Amino acid sequence: MAPARDRRTGFSRRRQYSTFFGYVLAVAGAVVGAALLVASVFNPPAFSAARMGVATLTAPVASVIDTLADAAASVPAAIGSWFRVHGENTALRAEVKRSRALLTAARTIAYDNRRLRALLAVRDRTPEAVATARLVGSTASSGRRFALLNAGRFQGVRPGMPVRGPNGLVGRVLETGPIAARVLLVTDPESLVPVRRTRDGMPAIAAGRGDGRVDIRSVNATNVRFATGDMFVTSGTGGLYAPGVPVAQVESAGADSVVAIPYAAPDSLDFALVERPFMPMPPSPPARPAAP
């Protein structure tokens, strides 16, 4: 049987009351909207006061709803953070354990080093500073690499003295004048600096390339592997440069000979420190007079 087309409320009280209150609310909403429209046009201050009053009443409710929404949205992020922090905590614990073992080994080596030095009566020498001066210029257009130092013989600067900057070794004094000195940079092709690798102490030679970089060459070994980022410092061999001064860092991995970037760039240096040689050669004994 087909449904009846008559959809009137009939004798249902609930449906009658629902329809009546729906009409009442629709009419009331239309009246309130019209009143607000008229107030906004003819009396803006009153409309603004009413709007702020409604905002004052609804602001706490909106704040509570916003807080609840943020709390609900933060639950998945908190769960993910818990798992991530748990993994990071495990990794950090393992790293601390490895670092503790390395620290223990380093302390043992330092203790043995001090004991052996005491047994052998090895004396450590700290190089003395001679002068602090400004680097006023450096060559960049030719194959040679020199820098001009604003200090000379009057300030105690002599040929052969090492020159270093805040970040590492710059070079050595080649020539001196009364108030200026010429510095041979570590990047010059004639510069050779004995160095060692910081992670294992492997000896090497830092030779200038003439293009702002240096070649790191292995000494007395073949098939030596260099890793990217290997750090090299002066070894103290030869007695000119004090040990432990940063020289260069390997640019890319290789074997036997690799290219490295010096730590001290003369173009970016304002001041440099001139030091005495680490272990200067003792003076020659005076010649004995010839026998009559």
Rank of each mutant, 00 (worst) to 15 (best):
N43P: 02
N43V: 02
P44F: 03
P45W: 00
S48N: 11
A49Y: 00
A49S: 01
A50V: 02
A50P: 00
A50W: 06
M52N: 09
V54C: 14
V54G: 15
A55S: 07
T56D: 09
L57F: 04
P60E: 01
V61E: 13
V61K: 06
V61T: 12
A62Q: 02
A62H: 05
V64Y: 05
A69S: 10
A69N: 02
A71C: 05
S74G: 14
S74F: 07
S74I: 01
S74W: 02
S74E: 13
V75A: 06
A77S: 12
A77I: 10
A77R: 12
A78E: 04
A78M: 09
A78K: 08
G80N: 10
G80L: 14
G80F: 15
S81G: 06
W82K: 10
W82F: 15
F83H: 13
R84Y: 04
R84C: 11
R84V: 10
R84W: 10
G87L: 07
T90I: 13
A91V: 06
A91T: 11
A91L: 15
R93Y: 09
A94D: 14
A94H: 03
A94V: 06
V96P: 02
K97Y: 04
R100I: 11
R100K: 13
L102D: 10
L102A: 15
L103G: 12
T104A: 11
A105Y: 02
A106K: 04
R107T: 04
R107S: 03
T108K: 12
T108L: 09
T108R: 12
I109K: 08
A110I: 08
Y111L: 12
D112H: 08
D112S: 11
R114G: 03
R115K: 07
R115N: 01
L116R: 10
R117T: 14
A118P: 03
L119K: 06
L120G: 10
A121F: 11
A121W: 12
R123H: 02
R125G: 05
P127R: 10
E128N: 01
A129P: 00
V130A: 03
V130G: 08
A131R: 00
T132G: 09
A133K: 10
R134Y: 01
G137K: 01
S138Q: 13
A140G: 14
S141P: 01
S142K: 14
R144D: 06
R144L: 03
F146D: 08
A147I: 00
